[in-house]
């Protein structure tokens, strides 16, 4: 007996990425720097979120050429983004053998009501969430991994913290309720009942949950790990900084040693300039990427 791409195998890859750092890269050269710095996977993109934000306009799936160039350059898993609801972009990514698809709010959504039915795919999916309801709906659709949305391309960790704390608080609410209250909680969070039942049984989300959106320093990565994330995505934070290789390596070591302030102090020394950040309250509601997704 041999069965490919079962949910257990999709979820299993996410389990193998735990405790690691996934880095945004825009070409083969950056991908190699990321791999050598200890990234567990790379996200292949044409433009990193900070530039997508600056450029405006419609942001779509990256060119297949850029993604394949990255896939050829490294031996670690390669992820790529499809627009929310754009199942054809996902089919294309699957056909070129991508290791993970990010159905991402960083791109312009393609469907204002539906997300992709991820159960239809061999490739595993990661999706963003701002709270337990959103995470549960994505899991019901077949997501094998969840990440906080944060506010991508800002270099500002406040939204990722808010989303992680919200998810944790809402999980605690599920765990502390009695089973008679579960249906009401399902309505309150707009979360499928069967996913909440699974959470109650396991004591945690049934899939891995990474931090993403605004992580720019080793301390940011360690903060998200101490808040209970399983690992970290770093988008613009590395290749928008003064010395990407140094910063990438420092964030990797910080993510493993998130509970050891002496190590965090050591790797934070002489890192050069971090990316310039954006204060969230200077963004209009329309400019907030985390609002995308339903």
């Amino acid at each position: 007996m041999k069965i490919e791409s079962t949910f257990k195998v999709k979820k299993g890859l996410a389990e193998m990425l735990k405790g690691g750092v996934i880095m945004d890269v825009v070409n083969a050269e950056q991908a190699v720097i990321a791999e050598k710095s200890g990234a567990v996977a790379v996200m292949a993109l044409e433009r990193i979120p900070a530039d997508i934000r600056a450029d405006g306009g419609v942001a779509r799936m990256s060119s297949v050429g850029v993604i394949q160039e990255v896939m050829d350059a490294v031996s670690i898993p390669v992820m790529a983004k499809a627009r929310i609801g754009h199942f054809v972009e996902a089919q294309i990514l699957e056909s070129i053998g991508i290791d993970f698809i990010d159905e991402s709010e960083v791109l312009t959504p393609a469907d204002d009501i539906n997300h992709i039915n991820k159960n239809n795919f061999k490739s595993p999916f990661v999706c963003g969430a701002t709270g337990l309801g959103e995470a549960s709906r994505r899991i019901a659709e077949g997501a094998a991994m969840i990440r906080t949305k944060g506010e991508a391309g800002t270099g500002n960790v406040i939204e990722a913290v808010k989303h992680m704390r919200t998810i944790t608080n809402e999980i605690n609410e599920v765990l502390s309720c009695d089973t008679n209250q579960l249906v009401a909680l399902s309505k309150k969070f707009r979360a499928p009942l069967n996913v909440l039942e699974e959470i109650k049984e396991l004591g945690k989300l049934p899939v891995v949950n990474f931090a993403a959106g605004g992580i720019a320093t080793p301390a940011d990565a360690a903060l998200m790990m101490q808040l209970g994330c399983d690992g970290v995505f770093v988008g613009s934070g590395i290749f928008k900084s003064g010395d990407p290789a140094e910063r990438a390596e420092a964030i990797v070591v910080a993510t493993t040693n998130y509970n050891d302030p002496k190590v965090l102090a050591d790797v934070s020394k002489d890192l050069g300039e971090p990316m310039v950040g954006i204060n969230i309250d200077t963004l209009t509601e329309e400019e907030k990427l985390a609002k995308r997704g339903w």
Binding site: I3, S5, K8, V9, G12, I98, P124
Partner: peptide, 27 residues
């Protein structure tokens, strides 16, 4: 990565010592 990329990851029968069971092979 001898079996391919993630889409070729699989669950399959393994004979481990005197036992047969199904296990995950991931990349």
């Amino acid at each position: 990565n001898a079996y391919g990329r993630q889409n070729e990851s699989f669950e399959a029968d393994v004979k481990f010592l005197n036992n047969n069971d199904i296990y995950c092979f991931i990349r």
